Simulated assay, not measured.
Amino acid sequence: MTTAPLSAPRPSTTALVVVDVQNDFCEGGSLAVDGGAAVATDVEALVASGAYDTVVATRDHHIDPGGHFSETPNFVDSWPRHCEAGTPGMELHEPLTTSMFAAVFDKGEYSAGYSGFEGSTSGGESLADWLRQQGITRIDVCGLAMDHCVRATALDGVREGFGVRVLEDLTAAVMPQNLPALREELTAAGVQV
């Protein structure tokens, strides 16, 4: 659980990273996570509160991700088609809009692309490089899904040298029953949960 009130202003060296709160991952989408739409609403409220000076988003943006898509998915390494480039499913879920973010990092064009750190801006700038250029040393991570792309982004954030906190109250999981083990994994890696 989070340790500080989410509305409390964060230091300017901390960025909020909103992971994959997209139509296909919210109720009604092709790979919906229960609670996804509520996450979108709650994240919008946090962004609107002005608690963070720097707020960015990541998006799945699949073109041809190979075996990541399957007609017979195992829901571990393969999934139904989702967040295909140019489709409504890849857009941010309302009330979120791209204009709310300082930058949007698309990932997974030709790969699974779980981590936001695999993403880049339309100009080709990576998430890690962009954050460093803004003087960011810590990131708070939220979004969808806790047990996949939020997890991967948090772990990669630590590997990239950032202090990382996951705002679990602003996430939803594909498999909620696995959250206790996931919390242990993240904590062991140096992520604050």
Rank of each mutant, 00 (worst) to 15 (best):
E184P: 06
D147F: 14
A38V: 13
T87Y: 01
C142N: 12
E168N: 05
A189E: 12
T137P: 12
T171W: 06
G163W: 05
V141I: 15
A85D: 10
F117R: 08
V19T: 08
H68D: 00
V21I: 13
S78W: 01
E168R: 14
G35C: 09
G163M: 05
Y52I: 06
P95W: 01
T2V: 12
T137C: 09
T2L: 10
V158Q: 09
T97E: 14
L170Q: 05
D20H: 05
G163D: 13
R132I: 03
T58V: 09
E84L: 03
H82K: 02
G50H: 13
M146P: 02
E44A: 15
A57G: 03
T13P: 06
T187A: 15
G108P: 01
S70F: 00
A181I: 06
Y52F: 15
S49G: 14
S115E: 07
G123Y: 07
V164D: 03
V17Q: 03
A85M: 05
E118M: 09
G113Y: 02
E94V: 07
A154G: 09
L167W: 13
E184A: 15
T72A: 09
F69D: 00
G119Y: 07
T97Q: 11
V33E: 08
A172T: 12
V141H: 13
M175G: 00
E118H: 10
T58M: 10
R183W: 14
C26H: 01
V164K: 13
L182S: 11
A38H: 11
R183D: 11
Q177H: 12
A173P: 08
R59S: 12
G143D: 14
S70N: 03
A189T: 08
G161P: 11
S115P: 07
V19H: 03
D140C: 13
K107G: 02
Y114F: 15
V55P: 07
L131Y: 06
I136A: 08
G108W: 00
G113K: 01
G135D: 04
I63Q: 12
D53K: 15
D77Q: 08
T72V: 05
G50E: 10
P5R: 14
G86T: 09
D60S: 07
N74H: 04
A188V: 13
L127E: 05
G28A: 09
L186Y: 09
V19K: 03
G50R: 14
W79R: 02
G113S: 04
T54K: 10
V193T: 15
F25W: 04
A40R: 00
H148T: 07
A152F: 07
A172C: 10
S115F: 03
G86Y: 06
S7W: 10
R151T: 12
D64K: 02
E27F: 04
A103M: 05
A45R: 15
A181R: 14
I63T: 12
P5M: 06
V56E: 07
M100T: 07
